[in-house]
Amino acid sequence: MKYLVKKIVTLIMTLFLVSVLAFLAFQIIPGDVVTSILGTEATPEREEALRKELGLDQPPVVRYVRWAGNVLKGDFGESYRYSKNMNQMMPVAELIGDKLPVTLLLAALSMLIIIVIAIPLGVFWARSKSKILDVSLNMGTQTAMAIPSFFLGVLVTYLFGFVLKWFAPGSYVSFRDDLWGCIRYLIFPAISVAIPKIAMTARFLRNSMLTERSSDYVRTAFSKGASERRVSYVHVLRNAMMPVVTFLGMIIAEIVAGSIVVEQVFSLPGIGKLLISSISTRDFPVVEILILYITFVVIFVYFLVDILYRVIDPRISSK
């Protein structure tokens, strides 16, 4: 319990620090936002008015407090670039809310593919005694991990889009119009996200199982007459999965960040693509919130994994 409280306090502290950094970092940037919105031709009065409107005439601390207060209330501010209609800028919340489901769907699909393939593969690898299989799996996973995600995306596009013609690259349909069609398109980016992670997870699980294999309880199980199959699946796998859970947690964090690149490859309108375009157009209110959001997801996943780890392995908390 004490541990939980300590963890939550750290979580909040980290988020606070990140929010301060995410906000202040964009206040010291060279190049005035006002000039970049209005152009260099605007009159000083017009510039002054906009500066007041955006609250930029206040000192940074005041602006941070106001910004953080609004964020806590769920008001994420307005984009500098996207307009909703003639007189109103697009609220950041709406902008992100529109893109978020794409990214989350992609992450969920990728995670599903990873778990479904990597865990059986890892177990199979650890149990196999064939030398050739071991070497080829070793080389195969090593190669899969060496392929950068964007190139993997290009390869998947080429193979499934141009050679096999299973999908038409660039023909993404919104999940609002056709959920099934959207998922069918998302499978391919999800595959590109999943392949290197499958390799990592399978390697990790295999090593973890091989380590567990030399423990005393395995010898005991064997001497009690348990079959090799039973020892592998019931005894070894359960213990070997412990570190894999943490590893999968890290992978979730990586997938969320990795979607920044993959969304670009498959031109998916997710938050990764939004982040890149907001950085290029210097749309700071959007960038700030996105960074805060992605950080939050990453930290929160780590937090959950930490807690989960203690729940599934009571030995840790008793130590």
Binding site: A253, V256, A257, L275, I279, R282, V287, I294, V298
Partner: peptide, 18 residues
Amino acid sequence: DAVNAFPSILLALVVISI
């Protein structure tokens, strides 16, 4: 620790955007 926990591409993006 905080920086390590972070996906490196995101951090690089922040620095680049500044």
